[in-house]
Each structure stands twice: as structure tokens, then as C-alpha cells.
């Protein structure tokens, strides 16, 4: 079943066009990757879906309903959760409080919050000992785990992850990708934006290749992984933001 349908959208930052023409679909239960070099429009696509930007052309539908004019706080209430680039942990809140903030998209009981936190700590056991530490004191990898955990607290139907491997050491990156796969196996649909193409293609079902704000290719992950041309594009193509 198609959950999210992005149809020929254009997005701008002021007068600079970020996206020219993007169309994509995300089906229930999938991991879909958006790949491309820096500035190809991957993050802009996520920002447009989550309502931080409104498309200047085209439509976005979630379960058959237009969402492209809604505010971010309305979209996250529908279960589309955007974990932004650079982790964006609340620096002055503790790990527990950061997780609590993830439940801001709905009314919760105390017990529900506790269950949610427990579930996150099962996925990221490292966070357990940091639970009362302030966000700014965490390392990059810990912050990334917290950011994903915070996203999970929202009970996402679709989890959109923007560059979860950004600035992390390879060993941590592996853990992060493994966790994304686990989360998906628990039934969360994932839309993943990554520079790290190989890793993403290995966990994703399908992927879209973006270049200068356009989709230039879409295929199953396996096909893209086997294609040498994709590698070359990603390593040497023009990039602009």
C-alpha cells in the first residue's frame, strides 16, 4: 500500500530553487533511500514533506490526503516523523527529557511515556546509563541514537531520517544502520536520506537517485548496488545546495 506519494514538487529557499521536480512513493513496510551528493536536494525533500518548507509546485499525499499545506506540528501528529540532519538534540535537556519531547505530537499518559522510553532503551542500551545527562555533553554517536530514539517516541508510521551517519565513526555508523533495519522490522516504514550510498543500499528495499533537485533514477536497491555507474555518479557528480 502506498503511504506517501510525492508528486512533481518544486521547493525554494527564497529565490534559490532547492528542488526542481521530485516525485517519489513510499510503501508500507519499506525502507526507501534517497541518495545523491551534497546539495542534490535530499534534505530539502524531507523538509518539504515534514512541512518546514511548502512546495511551490506539486502535491504531497499521505494515505490519500493532501498534506503539503499543513504546518510541521500537524504533519507529525499524523505519524510522519522527521529526524533532522545534524541530530539537533535539545542541548539543555537531559536524555530522558529529550525522549519525552518526542511524544509532543499527542496526549500521553505517564505509563505510555515510560513504556516508550523502555522500548527506546532496549534498542539503544547505551543510552541507559546516560539517561540523566544533558544533551550537549553526549558524543556524536550517542546524540544520533538519542535523535532516532526521540523520533521513535512519536510512534511514527513513517520515520524520515536525514543523514544519520553524518560525522560518525565507521563502527558507529554500522550500529546505526543495523538499528534502522531492526526498527523497520518492527513495522516502521523508513525514508532514509544518506550520503553513505553503499550502506543505505544494503538495508533499503528501493532507492531514488537525486541530482540537482531532480530524480534521475529509481530502482530496487539490489539493482542499484550492482550498477557501477551509480557509484561513479555518487563519487564524482556535481553537487550544489
Amino acid at each position: 500500500m502506498t503511504m506517501l506519494k510525492v508528486d512533481h514538487i518544486e521547493s525554494r529557499y527564497g529565490e534559490v530553487v532547492g528542488l526542481h521536480d521530485i516525485s517519489l512513493e513510499v510503501n508500507e513496510g519499506e525502507i526507501v533511500a534517497l541518495l545523491g551528493v551534497n546539495g542534490a536536494g535530499k534534505s530539502t525533500t524531507l523538509k518539504t514533506i515534514s512541512g518546514l518548507l511548502h512546495p511551490t509546485k506539486g502535491t504531497i499525499e499521505y494515505l490519500g490526503e493532501r498534506i503539503d499545506r499543513l504546518a510541521p506540528e500537524a504533519i507529525v501528529r499524523k505519524g510522519i516523523v522527521h529526524v533532522p540532519e545534524g541530530r539537533r538534540i535539545f542541548p539543555g535537556l537531559t536524555v530522558r527529557e529529550n525522549l519525552l519531547m518526542g511524544t509532543s505530537n499527542r496526549k500521553t499518559t505517564r505509563a505510555e511515556v515510560e513504556r516508550g522510553i523502555e522500548r527506546v532503551l532496549e534498542i539503544f542500551p547505551d543510552l541507559k546509563r546516560l539517561i540523566n545527562q544533558l544533551g550537549w555533553s553526549l558524543s556524536g554517536g550517542q546524540q544520533q541514537m538519542l535523535a532516532i530514539g526521540r523520533g521513535l517516541m512519536a510512534n511514527p508510521k513513517i520515520l524520515m531520517l536525514d543523514e544519520p551517519s553524518l560525522g560518525l565513526a565507521p563502527v558507529i555508523v554500522k550500529q546505526v544502520f543495523q538499528t534502522i533495519r531492526e526498527i523497520n522490522e518492527q513495522g516502521v516504514t523508513v525514508l532514509l536520506v544518506e550520503q553513505n550510498a553503499s550502506m543505505s543500499l544494503r538495508i533499503a528495499h528501493r532507492a531514488y537517485l537525486l541530482e540537482t533537485g531532480r530524480v534521475v533514477r529509481s530502482d530496487t536497491a539490489a539493482n542499484l548496488l550492482a550498477d557501477d555507474a551509480v557509484r561513479t555518479t555518487l563519487l564524482t557528480a556535481h553537487g550544489r545546495g
Binding site: 515534514s50 518546514l52 504546518a71 510541521p72 506540528e73 507529525v76 501528529r77 516523523v81 522527521h82 533532522p84 539537533r88 535539545f90 542541548p91 539543555g92 535537556l93 527529557e97 519525552l100 519531547m101 518526542g102 511524544t103 509532543s104 505530537n105 499527542r106 526521540r150 512519536a154
Partner: peptide, 24 residues
């Protein structure tokens, strides 16, 4: 209180707060 924490979160990073569903 959650509301108090939401106010703090808004102060620290309004964009992310909105992404969490907080009416900033």
C-alpha cells in the same frame, strides 16, 4: 511538567521543537 519542558525545548531549538509537534 511536560509543558515546561516543551517551553524549554522551544527556546533551545525552535525548528526541531516544531518537528516534534510542539506548537512553538
Amino acid at each position: 511538567t511536560k509543558l515546561g519542558k516543551q517551553m524549554q525545548a522551544t527556546a533551545q531549538d525552535p525548528t526541531t521543537a516544531r518537528l516534534m509537534g510542539i506548537n512553538t
